[in-house]
């Protein structure tokens, strides 16, 4: 971190606080991770964290739990806008391609139709719109989820392999301003979280 060098060897209280902060950053875990045995417990825990003002926490479940994004207080996905841009780009590309190839570059009389005969080109407009929309949806989803990612700190939790089997995990990240090693742990314990463990970044 930038301020560690300036704090080295100084004895003032402000500098001591800076040292403490630096040490905290260095030793701070990535998140506090635990699990539940039912989606209902997880759902309630997410609602409680959301209402307590936590923002940086995540849930890991073996199957999609309906309404969990509301319980977590996640904002609406931006993916539709990405798809709209992809679709618009696809349509524009198709019209451009068809116009230049049919009207400008290679004018031919095909079946007595006009060179730029829109009805015969609509399938192309349609297909390219769909194709680029799908690409935008598929790759947009990967990009927004920062995939591919082969390692994630929560995987260090000893039981995390069961997140794809029968356990419902919650991970409260230490970067959350509300995060407190003692208070957060106590809150999760009252919610019935099992096997709470801090995982390193």
């Amino acid at each position: 971190m930038a301020h560690t060098e300036s704090s080295a060897g100084s004895a003032t209280p402000a500098a001591a606080a800076a040292v403490a902060a630096a040490v905290d950053v260095a030793t701070r875990p990535f998140a506090l991770v635990g699990h539940f045995e039912s989606p209902a417990q997880l759902y309630r825990a997410c609602e409680t964290l959301r209402d307590a003002g936590y923002e940086h926490f995540d849930a890991h479940t073996p199957f999609p739990v309906h309404g969990l994004e509301r319980a977590m207080g996640l904002p609406a996905s931006k993916l539709p806008w990405v798809v709209l841009c992809g679709g618009t780009a696809g349509l524009s590309l198709a019209v451009w391609l068809a116009y230049y190839s049919q009207e400008v570059w290679y004018r031919h009389n095909i079946g007595g139709k006009e060179a730029f005969a829109i009805p015969s080109l609509i399938p192309i407009f349609f297909e390219l719109t769909i194709l680029l929309s799908s690409f935008a949806a598929f790759f947009g989803l990967w990009a927004m989820n920062k995939q591919p990612e082969f390692f994630h700190p929560v995987m260090q939790h000893p039981s995390f392999h069961r997140a794809s089997d029968d356990l419902f995990f919650i991970a409260v990240e230490a970067r959350d301003p509300k995060y407190d090693p003692v208070a957060t742990r106590a809150l999760l314990e009252t919610l019935g979280t099992r096997e709470l463990a801090e995982v390193a970044p």
Binding site: G111, P119, S120
Partner: peptide, 12 residues
């Protein structure tokens, strides 16, 4: 509607 139209328009 377009499927109906295009085949007829194209075959003429």
């Amino acid at each position: 509607g377009f499927s109906q139209f295009m085949l007829i328009w194209y075959a003429n």
